[in-house]
Amino acid sequence: MSPLGPLAWGASGWGDEIAAGLWLTVRLALATLPVGLAIGFGVALMKQSRLRVVSGLGELYTTVFRGLPELLTIFLVYFGAPRLVGDISGFAAGLIALALVFGAFSSEVLLGAMRGVPDGQREAAEALGFSTGAAFRHVMLPQVWRLALPGLTNNWLVMLKDTSLVSVVALTELMRASDVAARATREPFLFYLVACLLYLALSIVSSFIAAWLERRAGRGIPTAGRA
């Protein structure tokens, strides 16, 4: 058998199982992103609140979910959720745990970005007759988005890799698919190396998309050092 035989497609090899795992990893990360962003946004707004209780809760949230090991957060959600809200799937547990962590880190990024947009921008928009909501959406958000993008990209890359930890609660994503194949074929080096290379590919593709988004978000803004 050729050295890549175990990676064959179909019934005899593990290529199709690995591909299915890769696809599940991508879906998990993509599904986590909007939920995590929503949490991060909400918590960032909480931290800006003038009410001490609200901002304190926002800080507490960030401290907890930035401080806990991601692996432990996943266990807590997977084994803890059924006690509070009923049974959840491995995918949902992974999604919630990753979104909680992504939200905690992103709230810091978004908070920094919100503070980075001068107050005059909002005042100018309101002077032009924008309602508070419209001013936020059309004037503030695009600027917050531009400032937050590099930080959010970083959080995305971290989260993408953290999806591998969801394998410990029996979700057959890329890591676990590789794990099952490595054990069944007795070729751990080959399969873990393939897993590493696929994660690396996901990271590289993400970086290209992020760079494109950053260029797009930065349209019309002169920056030093960029051709």
Partner: peptide
């Protein structure tokens, strides 16, 4: 930096 610690 581009691959998960678990995989490494």
């Amino acid at each position: 930096r581009g691959t998960p610690l678990l995989a490494q």
